[in-house]
Design a protein around this nucleic acid. Structure first.
Lengths: 338, 338
DNA sequence: GTGAAAGCGCTAACAC
DNA sequence: GTGTTAGCGCTTTCAC
């Protein structure tokens, strides 16, 4: 048989007609006789004809591919986002090309170059922690490729963004603790150079202020991983006046704190309440299950993808950037009081 | 300026030379004068020329894209695999196009169609649970596209596979339970049409046999998700002669069983030991932390990707399929006895 | 040392 | 109703 996959030419030759007729027949063009259409469609089916997306891309200067750059895929939040992106993209007829920056600025730039070369129709980005030069993103835009940032966005670049409402989320988490009777609330926080870390801490402080509780700086610790929580939570418990609640910046940190607190003989939530951020499997499967803020990674993916597909469809690069905020919501489970 | 991205023609026109000369200059062809080369390279740089990968793909009938189909990305194992795949692929100059089947046969077929259309150079697949017809994969192969299966492989298809050593892993898990004094070991198993499910069950049975323990079919239940474990584990506990250990086919199932067992008032591991498969965050953070088999997803991704890139490079579809086995190893934690 | 032309697969004017 | 032609961006033989 033919080498490689079946082309329109193969079908044309077999049926003794021209390639353009085959092309038209396949897309049900009104001019073509139903007899020809039938013959073409039958043979196309029999030979498993698949339109060559590469040729179509070249022809139409449109690849129907969107590129995604994320820091690291092995995080529940990011893989959820990808999942949401993938859903919308495929529904809209786009394929998804995936790149990890591994939190490296170098890799991120290389990824952008690959995306430019691939002539993707649009790009979704969550920036690496290292990135503070944005010319590679500008280059995308200069080439008419729309970008939507998500989660790790850039406020120097006026761009479309989809972000999680970190401030409000943190605020409601801490308020929930206060409403259930907690008075000395510790915060295990993310690094403050990340907007996310800043906003969650602000929410924490604001909630305390609102309820006339003083902010004790000893109760705020930079700590944002399971291991770090195992290491640093004991210090909190040893304080002369230990906390009666812990608000952790993410779920693994909450899980770490939970583990330490239980081992130290405290009851959760009776003695110490614990609350996390991001609803992953860990929160659901821990004992007690963790009260947490649902971060809706999947939702972030959906919104970002929708926004991007819209920008691509409009085809006009002269748009007014938009920032969409995905609300978090509190999921009350066993690690906080009623 | 020009609409869209810069092409070789733009450069040619600007310099008053032909497109072919520009093409040759860019790839340092010996025939071209160094003066021309310089001029071309300078302008290419100035104008941020990027070769159009789409045109190259069409020209060379090679897309430099590999497709990946996985059941669901939001699993630590699968996202680790992707991470490994991505690393090797990019090192070898391939981009990665990602598809989720969401455990649906329909979607998996649609994904394969998209991959065929996109003219990817090779495909990596971990099959959906629903899949038991493999003609879509045959179609890929018939079109000269090499496939490497990983984790969820298919023994009806003689194909390249990268698998985790499920048999040995299961065997050592069960042997560990036996060595720590368990006698009635239940198995929460994956569907038996999946090789993975078969092999883990075989390992389970073999370990019992080796240690002269009888296999009680009542203790083998098809159950491979958190929810299912919540639903079905109680049945096990209600048996006239309940188990003193549970070997679960994956980590979420183990976590579900753990939760039920604790709620029912049994002590883990004193009354009932529990062991999982796949080392994700849930196993590390549960209480007690789960003894489990490290499944090395990243390693699986590396091996699978390497194998695929090799097949693509060989360019000959007449190869002898190979199965690579990635070893598991037992991580002993608190959910089993000493 | 450089250019012209053909072709990868497909489509869309433009013919007839 | 169908065929011819040109062109998307690039490479590569074949000229000269």
């Amino acid at each position: 048989m033919r080498s490689g996959q079946v082309t329109i030419k193969d079908i044309a030759k077999e049926l003794g007609i021209s390639a353009s007729t085959v092309s038209r027949a396949l897309k049900d063009h009104p001019d073509i006789s139903s007899k020809t259409k039938e013959a073409v469609n039958e043979l196309a089916k029999k030979w498993h004809y698949k339109p060559n997306a590469v040729a179509l891309s070249l022809r139409h200067s449109k690849s129907n591919v969107i590129g995604v750059i994320i820091p690291e895929i092995v995080h529940h939040f990011f893989s959820s986002v990808i999942s949401g992106i993938e859903k919308i993209a495929h529904e809209a007829g786009y394929n998804v090309m995936m790149f990890q920056s591994n939190e490296s600025y170098e890799r991120e730039m290389a990824n952008v170059q690959a995306l430019l070369s691939s002539r993707v129709d649009g790009v979704l980005v969550s920036m690496s922690k290292e990135t503070n030069d944005f010319s590679h993103f500008k280059e995308l835009r200069d080439n008419g490729i729309p970008i939507v940032f998500f989660d790790r966005v850039c406020n120097e670049l006026s761009s479309d963004n989809v972000i999680v409402d970190d401030f409000a989320g943190a605020f409601s988490a801490v308020e929930h603790l206060i409403n259930t009777g907690c008075k000395r609330i510790a915060h295990l926080s993310a690094p403050q150079h990340m907007l996310l870390g800043q906003n969650r801490q602000k929410g924490y402080r604001q909630a305390l202020l609102k309820h006339k509780l003083s902010v004790d700086e000893d109760l705020i610790i930079k700590c944002d991983s399971f291991e770090e929580a195992i290491e640093k939570t004991p210090d909190l418990l040893r304080l002369p006046n230990p906390p009666d609640a812990i608000f952790a910046v993410n779920e693994l940190t909450a899980a770490g704190a939970l583990s330490v607190v239980k081992k130290a003989g405290f009851k959760v939530p009776e003695d110490i309440s614990i609350i996390g951020f991001t609803d992953g499997v860990v929160s659901r499967t821990s004992d007690p299950a963790l009260t947490t803020l649902e971060q809706h990674g999947y939702e972030v993916g959906l919104r970002a993808s929708e926004l991007l597909v819209g920008r691509i469809t409009e085809g006009d690069m002269d748009y007014e950037p938009v920032t969409k905020v995905v609300k978090t919501n509190l999921i009350v489970r066993g690690s906080t009081k009623n």
